[in-house]
Design a protein around this nucleic acid. Sequence first.
DNA 1: AATAAATGTATACACTGTCCACAATGACAC
DNA 2: GTGTCATTGTGGACAGTGTATACATTTATT
Lengths: 209, 209
Amino acid sequence: MSALSRESYRHGDLHQTLLSAALEMAREGGPDAVVLREATRRAGVSPNAAYRHFADRRAMLLAVSAAAQGMAADSMEKAIAAVPESGDPKVDAREELRAVGLGYLAFAREQPGLFRAAFSVPDDLSNARSEDKAGAQGRSPYGVLGDVLDRLVEVGALPQERRADAELLAWSSVHGLGMLVIDGPLRRLPSEMVANASERLVDMVARGL
Amino acid sequence: MSALSRESYRHGDLHQTLLSAALEMAREGGPDAVVLREATRRAGVSPNAAYRHFADRRAMLLAVSAAAQGMAADSMEKAIAAVPESGDPKVDAREELRAVGLGYLAFAREQPGLFRAAFSVPDDLSNARSEDKAGAQGRSPYGVLGDVLDRLVEVGALPQERRADAELLAWSSVHGLGMLVIDGPLRRLPSEMVANASERLVDMVARGL
DNA sequence: AATAAATGTATACACTGTCCACAATGACAC
DNA sequence: GTGTCATTGTGGACAGTGTATACATTTATT
């Protein structure tokens, strides 16, 4: 047995420690940069110790993905909260829709690694709203978007018959720009051009939904 | 030296053979499934032979990406060609815009592995129109989309001031749906729901651009 | 205090991308 | 033709990865 860098045989909170290490790797290099062995190394533990807390690398990635989705939700809710009240509920609702899209894109640009880890790791919509993907406010990204769309219908800014699955349309648009800008063909697009495209994109969605 | 499975020491067209093998792997499992050694194995050649034709795995992936983009362009042009002429050039141009989006999405659903290889491998927009990404008709996906947008302006279906970088908006929307549906959170969405969302999405773009 | 469950370690395997030195081949000058 | 040389292939090695299997240590439970 090699000298332990900690005192006790047990680590104490290895699950969380591994997850944090994995998140840090994802932040730096996206999902592909999440390497199980490196996580255990950073935690000062043997490689196989990870298997007591994650079934395999894929499971670890899913945990990273869920956590990153929570952060994305935070970014979106932060943007919503920053929308000034205008008095007109229709205007407010529409501004919130814009905000949710811009918040999503802000997260993509500020944390490209985590963004990719969050949204391009295989997972099912069936649990898109599930708890572990929630941010500080307890809502998942899908949930946050859904709330805003509901509000649009309530105030009459979106006809009821267009509400169904409107998430898909709105989400697709901003997600696409995010992906193209981060590691797709638009990777090296100057950032003011991205900002400009972001604004026009959310306008397009608000107008076209 | 182990017995060669071919007659001559030289292979003849190893570059193309490796590329084909890599494309097949990408078709089956996306960019991550492209493994250099496996390609050489399928070509009946030693692992290092690949390095005479590709600088490294990344270069191989870029070649796969370019080829896959050509196929996407083909899918888009096929969809455009299938649009019936209505006599009204404005209607035709708009239908072509819809077609280009639906062609893109059709490719995503029919060849998810190649789609991801095509559009989620780091590359620059600076050469988005370059030759090697061209399909049978010699146009890249970006080029095909641009052509359709130009036509929209020509026939007066899109105001000039909104033409600039409209590629980004249109592309983002369909690309996002494609990604979400393929390996993102919408992966298991039933296919008729995807088809429905696709239609509504291109409508939204056509209306909102 | 005895035993079982949980958590960490050691060792090993197959597989990957890539480096280096060497071998076979084809093209070309003389 | 024959000799030279760049091109294209091979062989062996290395570090690094995910993961299986067997074992050790600690905590929880009876």
